[in-house]
Simulated assay, not measured.
Amino acid sequence: MNLQKFKSIFTLLVLGTIGYLIHKTAFYFWVPKLYQDQFVYTLELLYLFFFFFSAFLILVLDLVKQKSINSVGYTFLLLTTLKMGIAYIFLKPILAANLEKTPIEKMSFFIIFIYFLAMETYVTIRILNNKQ
């Protein structure tokens, strides 16, 4: 069994868990529990959504690399655009709410989105730099 191809997903899992723990700790100290209870999506749900989408993206990029290394960049752009569209659909209820807690929830959503996007970009760069 080739465990090397799952190294990126394991790294994503570890970094995602670290990011979640830091985020949860920051919420514990700076965001009132009342606000957290009123969020449209829980922090856990957002991290799970972005983790699974990022893992899917990495697996697809690995498959594309096997077939044609020249298509990896285009596939990354296509899947990232798809992810942004789905994330916008997730974000619409948050944008529609106009409550005290809404700015915190928006900022939290975008932090998670950018954090996972940065990890996906790093993995894609690693794949493209290891051309053979």
Rank of each mutant, 00 (worst) to 15 (best):
S71F: 14
L45R: 04
T17Q: 01
V64S: 05
L13D: 10
Q66R: 11
I86S: 03
L79F: 05
L45S: 11
L46P: 00
P93N: 06
T75Q: 10
Q36S: 06
M1G: 08
D62E: 11
A87N: 00
G16V: 01
K7S: 09
H23F: 05
F113Y: 10
Y20N: 00
L34S: 15
Y88P: 00
K33D: 14
L45N: 09
V31E: 15
A96T: 09
E44K: 14
V64K: 07
F53D: 12
I125W: 08
L15Q: 02
P103G: 02
A26D: 03
Y35E: 08
F49R: 03
K5E: 08
Y47L: 04
K106F: 05
D37M: 10
K5N: 06
A87K: 01
L63N: 12
K92S: 11
G73T: 08
I104C: 10
T25D: 02
I69H: 14
K92C: 12
E44L: 07
F6Y: 13
F116N: 07
K24S: 05
F49M: 01
I89E: 11
W30L: 14
L128F: 12
S108R: 06
L61C: 05
V60E: 05
E44D: 14
F109C: 06
V14R: 04
Y88N: 02
V31F: 07
I86E: 03
F110P: 10
L57R: 10
N129R: 14
G73M: 13
Q66N: 15
